[in-house]
Design a protein around this nucleic acid. Structure first.
Lengths: 225, 225
DNA sequence: TTCATACCTCGATCATAGCCGAAGCATATG
DNA sequence: CATATGCTTCGGCTATGATCGAGGTATGAA
C-alpha cells in the first residue's frame, strides 16, 4: 500500500455534507463570502469558518480578502472538474427522484465559470466538428478558423492568451457524460453570451435560462450536426 | 442548496483511509479478495468486511463470488477516472517528498486495466496524431486506419466490439494531466504488450516495467512526434 | 468615539463511525 | 465425518471531528 498521492485526505474534505454543499455552491463560479457559504451549508458562522480553513489548507478553495469580507472561490479548474466527476458517480447511483430543477440543470448550467449541460456539450461538439477547435489528448487548442470565429463572436483572444490560465481546456460533463469547453475561452464565451442577452443566470443556483431570441441565435451559431 | 447529486455521500466513502487504500489497490485492475484488501488497508478482516459492504452499496466496487472467495473490483471505468482526478488534486498539493517509487509510477503504471503514465499519454497522443483514433468530445472512436493498426498489433477488434463496454474511452492521467486511452481497446492493448513481453507488471503495485527490447519496440510503434 | 458587522479562536458537548474480539455461517479439504 | 479457511454479524470501546455558545479582533458606518 501507500502508492501514489494521499487520496483520502482530500476526499474526506469533500466528504463532509457541509463542506460539500459549500463546494457545490462555489461551482456556480461566483466568489462567495464566509457567511453566505455558512447559509448555503446550513451551519453557523463559526462552524463555517472552521470548514473553510480546512478547505483552504487542502488547496481546494482560494480566498481573497476585501475589506471586512472574505471571498472564497474554487482554487482552480481542476477542482471543478473533479467535483463534476464525483457528481457523475453520485448521479449514476441515484436514478430515482429527479427533482424539478434537475431538468433545467441538465439543459444548461454554470460549471465553475463556463457553460455546461446539454448546451455546453452541443457548443463544444459543434466547434470541434467544424474545425474551430482541435483536441489532442487532454489539450484543446484553437485553430485559425476558430480564432476568426471567436473574434466575430466578440471575444478578445489576445487578452485571454496573455493570462496565465490555459486558453482552452476539456471538462467532463456529469449529466451528459461528454466533454464541454472550459478554460479562459470557455469563460469568455459564456460571458459574451450573457452580454448579448442570449441567456440569464439564476443568481441563486447554477441554472442558466436561455431567452427565446438567445435560444434561436445559439442554435444558429452552434447547430446540431 | 441541494443542487445536483449528493456528492458528499460517495466522497465520504473514498475519504476513509482504509477504504481509500482498498480503492487504490484496485486501481491496479486485478480483482482482489476481501482478505487481500484487508491486508492492503491494514485492518482486520471484520473491519474490511464492513468497508467493502459500504463500497458495494455505494456502487464503487462490484463483487463476484467464487467458491469461498469473494473477489472485488472497481465497478466501472468512471470510478477509476474519478480516482485519478482525485489523485491529481492530492498530488498538486503535495509537491514535497516524491518517494522512490513515484518516478516509476509516473513513467508507466496500470490504471484500472489500461496503460497510464508518461507511456500511456505517449501512446494515445501518437495514435491520435497519425489518425488511428479520433476524439470528438469525450467520445473516442477508432478510424479504419486505426483498425488496421490494431489488427497488425494483434488485437481482435471484432471480439471487443461485441462486448457491452465501450471500445475506446478517454481517461485523465493524474501525473501527466493529459488524456490516455481507456476502454476495452485500452485494456486489450496493454494485455497484448504483456503477451509480447514488452513489459512486466509488478504484482504488488501498479508499477509497469518495460523490458529493454520492449522499450525499443514501443518507441518504434509509438514514436514521439 | 460609539456601534454594528464580519470573521475568528477557544472550550465543551455530543454523535458518528472506525476498530477489534468473539462467535456464527458457508465452503472447501482431509 | 472433522477440520480449516474465508467471510460475516454482533456488541462494546474509543477517537475523531462536527457543532455551537461565548468571547475576542479587525473593518466600516454613524
Amino acid at each position: 500500500m501507500k502508492e501514489g498521492p494521499d487520496i483520502s485526505r482530500i476526499a474526506a474534505l469533500i466528504g463532509d455534507p457541509a463542506r460539500a454543499n459549500m463546494l457545490t455552491a462555489l461551482m456556480a463560479g461566483k466568489a462567495l463570502t464566509a457567511t453566505e457559504l455558512a447559509a448555503e451549508a446550513g451551519v453557523t458562522a463559526q462552524t463555517a469558518s472552521g470548514h473553510l480553513a480546512k478547505l483552504r489548507d487542502g488547496g481546494l478553495v482560494q480566498v481573497r480578502k476585501q475589506g471586512r469580507h472574505k471571498y472564497f472561490a474554487l482554487a482552480h479548474g481542476d477542482v471543478a472538474a473533479t467535483l463534476e466527476a464525483l457528481m457523475g458517480l453520485a448521479a449514476s447511483e441515484l436514478r430515482t427522484r429527479t427533482g424539478p430543477k434537475d431538468a433545467a440543470m441538465r439543459q444548461a448550467r454554470v460549471c465553475y465559470n463556463h457553460l455546461a449541460g446539454q448546451r455546453g456539450v452541443q457548443m463544444f461538439s459543434c466547434m470541434l466538428g467544424r474545425g474551430d477547435l482541435r483536441e489532442d489528448g487532454e489539450d484543446v487548442t484553437i485553430t485559425p478558423q476558430g480564432a476568426a470565429f471567436a473574434a466575430d463572436f466578440g471575444v478578445d483572444l489576445e487578452a485571454l492568451s496573455s493570462a496565465r490560465a490555459p486558453l482552452c481546456r476539456a471538462c467532463l460533463d456529469w449529466s451528459e457524460r461528454r466533454t464541454h469547453l472550459a478554460g479562459s475561452l470557455g469563460r469568455a464565451m459564456l460571458t459574451r453570451m450573457e452580454e448579448m442577452r442570449w441567456l440569464r443566470r439564476d443568481p441563486d443556483s447554477r441554472v442558466i435560462a436561455f431567452l427565446s431570441t438567445g435560444e434561436m441565435a445559439f442554435q444558429q451559431a452552434f447547430p446540431l450536426d
